[in-house]
Design a protein around this nucleic acid. Sequence first.
RNA 1: GCCUUGAUGGCGGAAUUGGUAGACGCGCUGGAUUCAAAAUCCAGUUCUGGCAACAGAGUGCGGGUUCGAUUCCCGCUCAAGGUACCA
Length: 982
Amino acid sequence: MKYNFNEIEKKWQKYWSENQTFKAENKSDKPKFYVLDMFPYPSGAGLHVGHPLGYIASDIYARYMRHKGFNVLHPMGYDSFGLPAEQYAIQTGQHPAKTTEENIKTYRRQLDQIGFSFDWSREVRTSNPNYYKFTQWIFKQLFESYYCKDADQARPIAELEEVFEIEGNKNINAVTDEGIEIFSAEDWKNYSEIEKQKVLSEYRLTYLSETEVNWCPALGTVLANDEIVNGVSERGGHPVVRKKMKQWSMRITAYAQRLLDGLEKIDWPQPLKDSQINWIGRSEGAHVEFAVQNSEYKIGVFTTRPDTIFGVSFMTLAPEHELVPEITTDEFKEAVDQYRTATAKRSERDRMADVKTISGQFTGAYAIHPFTGKPIPIWIGDYVLASYGTGAVMAVPCGDQRDYDFAKHFGIEIPNIFKDVDISEAACEDKNAVIANSDFISDLPAKKAIKKIIEKLEEKGIGKGKINYRLRDAIFSRQRYWGEPFPVYYKNDMPYMIDSKYYPITLPDVEKYLPTEDGKPPLGNAHTWAWDTEKNEIVSNELIDHKIIFPMELNTMPGWAGSAWYFNRYMDAKNSDEFAGKEALEYWRDVDLYLGGSEHATGHLLYSRFWQKFLFDKGFVPVEEYAKKLINQGMILGTSAFAYRWEYENKEKPEEPKKTIFVSKNVMERILKEREGLGKKKKAVVGEHVDLLGVSKVKKEDQYSHFTPIHADVRFVNASNELDVEAFKNWRPEFKDAEFILEDGKYIVGREAEKMSKSKYNVVNPDDICHDYGADTLRLYEMFLGPIEQAKPWNTAGITGVFGFLKRMWKLYHSGEEGAFFVSEEAPSKEELKTLHKTIKKVDEDIADFSFNTSVSSFMIAVNELTAQKCNKRAILEPLAVIVSPYAPHIAEELWEKLGHKESVSTAEFPVFEEKYLVESTKNYPISFNGKFRFTLELPLDMSKDEIERVVMENEKTQKQLDGRIPKKVIVVPGKIVNIVG
RNA sequence: GCCUUGAUGGCGGAAUUGGUAGACGCGCUGGAUUCAAAAUCCAGUUCUGGCAACAGAGUGCGGGUUCGAUUCCCGCUCAAGGUACCA
């Protein structure tokens, strides 16, 4: 019988679906195991071969753990809110819900065809109102909480209000906005409703704030930093300005320290942890206040080197610093204003990217040095960022290179406060340098000086030790349509939460998905988007009276909102009362294995940890870290194909039409090489080669043109990199009449590994592979490509290898007449048992190490050996089917059934490795001379060291190697090696 | 610049605590089978020299430790990813 993979795979996929084979129960006597994949955004392009890599690995793990007796939760769902669907809606007018639904159907079909053991009964979609009602609920919880530093956890905001009533806020130790005012109980009671709400919002874990954003008036939207190139929008090249906007923020900074500490408790890849540590950016130092001369104002700075305070010779403020207009003297007003306008035009990223240009402006004002009392000129400069620390620095040119460069550039003095250090060329940033010329901290090393200076600052009441974080509160508003609506309405411009009883607050329909003409987000186009506080329902905007009926929030939540808690939802996906029931949460607790790409390191993986900690503080979830172990899967890259275009124009005969000529790769390379030999600029000119190309007779120097690599669709290229020229010509009208310069009658393309993407025409779809070779081959091959965490280019060249393996394995079970199924009941031989147990051991170890590629190799070795042994014993082939089943489940099920089993192979117990079958009595000792291996010698394993040495030395091969020399030393490591030195 | 990861045949990659470098697969070469092809099977395949036995070189580069280094240590080069005026 032939290995008919198409039929087998369809049959078992149907079986699994009909029998709900992989449905996980929330109660079980078995230990639990939760295997999770980062869920996909269902894009219109469908799955490409890169997507399933992680899913296959996690599926192997999940199936393996089932065999090992665990109750496995292995769910899948969709992060289905997002920009592409909205862009598509803008272009076509189709509702994003509709296109998203279609895309999900494609994804599901593709996922099913690969044979994953997902429990589809728990599928979640972030854009489903039954799901996002809980995203809204969590948002409300955050709104109604503040971070208490004493308890080091989130507490209800209602507690604050009680305290305010009694004693004001003087004893409250909470994470708040900078510079919060102290008020008494009396003050509080006299505050208006609006004033009270304003105060509370300074404490809330999610709050409205004026945030600087990159506003693009032409597109009517806010752009992310990476959507701006050279100060204009990437799309369309429209001007971008920095603008203040009222937006929701998440006080993630409250959790900075715990997010840092938590990393020590979880088994995540070190690079990923490092990038989170980096992102949080903790630095220890001091906050110091500098008084401004002849004024009431004080400028606070953060410094990590308070010990260098005697080296301060100027201060620099960010141009946006709020005190700049207040302190600037009339004389400098104009220059300062000019500088401020100039920097406002540049995006933050531009400013940061341009490190070389030093610019700044003196304000005319002076601060007073807190210890020496000397006046210190106050400058503004765009090397100081408004968003870090206090937006101001005490400049110590002798100790900080940026301050040094700034001082040099503007001719500011550079006092030296380091003992025996030359600062004529550069600043001294060495923390081991001893401080000098610094009053009471002179002659101290940095560490001691820092301690002393902080004590003094605190004593004088002008500063204190401080820990600063680079991490900033996360902006949570998006001016988009296709996202979660906020459950918020506005009364007197203050936000109020709609009671969670009325969730979900469903996304309203709009006619256009673009921003409104007056620049409001797309929800501004909705006609029915007002909250009736009496009827508790969404009503027509026309009814807004600001008494009972109020306007609702027009922003939507960002992409990461839904994905910040979905792993909890899978535990109890159908619960309509709670985001997940207590019992389910207690049973599943956390993810045991989480698989996904490292690109989420500082986005999803940080925000989701933050939300989990918050939910933990509130007692809603039982664990503080939701994923014990995380594995990054590397990206599968596409192998792009390039055709090299040369635009040819005969300048002597302009009447001749221009020609598009494609030059085969090696011809092009030869030309470039020759030109290099002639000393001409590489890749610049091909004029001299007109003859060679045989195009036309022209004056050579008139032909100037570059070779331009053009992406050719990889479907037109075969394994030998030959281009199907006809298909390529028909592909695009502009290539219809192109000419081709061939080599050996073929057009050879260049190849390069790039991210798989539609625009690069290098996407390989798993559908074709499944059709031609089957899902089991695809699964094995993706694993066989190399270590899971490594990025690698996709190349189908080797796929016949694993396909051949499956066919050979199939044959083992079909040793009957004319290939009929047959297994013998005979007892297996020693050799057969050895092969089997060697493989069990290897697969156990490999799965524990997530080394799936080497398991596939060991399967191949096993099948090769069993084939050579002509093995057809049930006692070997039955366990073999189980070992292979996590990797190639369809063929395993089919063979399992043929072996006479009624239940799915997934219920079978994983074969247990037994050492006794591998015990050897002899060892083939490698004999080396001076560390160089020469030959092997088979000796009993129980032979003593001396005995081995004697036998080896007596051996004639040894004598031949020694050629009469007397060895200085003979090293014998029993069971390992013999090395003869001398 | 900084952080991280990596570099092994023609290619993807393997090598447990330092102990026979190149498993397994692809490709390539030769052979069997076939009218022929596909498929399948067998043999060979790191490089250099040699008919061969064998000898020499060899895991990015330069040193070191060791009887012995792909593996450990020091110094570099290159590549990929992340991050960037973070006071």
